[in-house]
Design a protein around this nucleic acid. Structure first.
Length: 308
DNA sequence: AAGTCGTGGAC
DNA sequence: TGTCCAAGACT
């Protein structure tokens, strides 16, 4: 929208730059003291380790990612190792992390890295963004965490921290707004290495202290200047922002179908897939969807398998 | 641009 | 128990 850049947002109490800078020190100092020792943060993880972790962490909790991440990197320590495998092996190794299309996209990204970038995860934001499964957030995260670059890294944790500390509201909007991106850029430290540190620190603060529910302001290094807390922590206004009932959806059927294929060694007969769901129309629709997504490969004689 | 896409733990 | 939530991407 032309003109939106210059519109003044009167509904928020965004910090002025001088206040913004005062956040960096306390948050980064807190991070130095309380950061979790996660495997993808260790130097030996490398850019590939960071990238794999970011794929797995999309909409999935850290604790569930940890074991799969370790197995994945032990088996495929470089992008070329994964690229040489059948995509179905990536889907199988993905296990029960959920959203298995991520496994397919990670495999595709590994192939693109092998073909276009000599087997090295690119450090350029635009080149990262061009890889399958990498959007604005993941491109910024890899560039920042793996290569120490200066990028606004706006994930759900950071958005919540900024919504509270800077804007004074309990929760950020459903979808990321231009105002949020602008705020994130304004809060980004000038120095590259400090900016990279800030990105990780503000994210960790949201993950450990400034959580969605039962936030712990007593442990927050910037509680004394948090706009939301200073306003008396007003409750979120408006309707509940979620409504994804899972039971009975196509997603549940897809999950059941894929679980059968994941646990089988070779091709599976149609009959085995039919057993997971009673309703034939929905079952067929789910299976068609999996085939269309490239997660399942139909063979002759009513056999199905993970993609070769 | 609102819907779709898994899974399981916490309260 | 049902609801909410978890380092989003894609169409």
């Amino acid at each position: 929208m032309p003109g939106s850049e210059v519109m003044t947002d009167t509904t928020t109490t965004d910090l002025v730059p001088a206040d913004a800078a005062s956040l960096h020190g306390p948050v980064i100092a807190w991070f130095d003291q309380h950061a979790r020792d996660l495997p993808w943060r260790r130097p030996e993880a490398g850019a590939w380790g960071v990238m794999v972790s970011e794929f797995m962490l999309q909409q999935t909790p850290v604790n569930r990612v940890l074991p799969v991440y370790e197995q994945w990197l032990a088996r495929w320590p470089r992008p070329a190792d994964l690229a040489a495998e059948a995509p179905g092996e990536a889907v199988r190794a993905w296990g029960r992390l959920g959203y298995p299309r991520r496994a397919l996209r990670l495999h595709g990204a590994a192939q693109a890295i092998t073909e276009r970038h000599g087997g090295d995860v690119p450090s350029d934001h635009a080149q990262l963004l061009a890889l399958p499964g990498i959007g604005e957030y993941t491109a910024a995260a890899v560039a920042s965490f793996a290569y120490g670059q200066r990028h606004a890294v706006l994930d759900t944790n950071v958005r919540r921290v900024f919504a509270r500390a800077a804007t004074g509201i309990q929760y950020p909007p459903t979808a990321t707004t231009a105002a949020e991106r602008k705020l994130a850029r304004a809060l980004l430290p000038d120095d590259e290495s400090t900016a990279s540190r800030w990105a990780a620190a503000s994210m960790e603060l949201g993950a450990l202290v400034c959580t969605a529910r039962s936030e712990e302001c007593g442990r927050c290094p910037i509680a004394d200047r948090c706009a939301w807390r200073l306003a008396g922590k007003p409750a979120h206004e408006g309707p509940a922002r979620r409504g994804q009932t899972y039971a009975g959806t196509d997603r549940q059927v897809r999950g059941k179908l894929l679980a059968v294929l994941r646990e089988a060694r070779g091709p599976v007969p149609q009959q085995s897939l039919d057993a997971v769901w009673h309703e034939p129309v929905q079952r067929a629709r789910a299976l068609d969807g999996l085939v269309a997504d490239g997660l399942v490969e139909p063979l002759a004689d009513g056999l199905y398998r993970l993609p070769a």
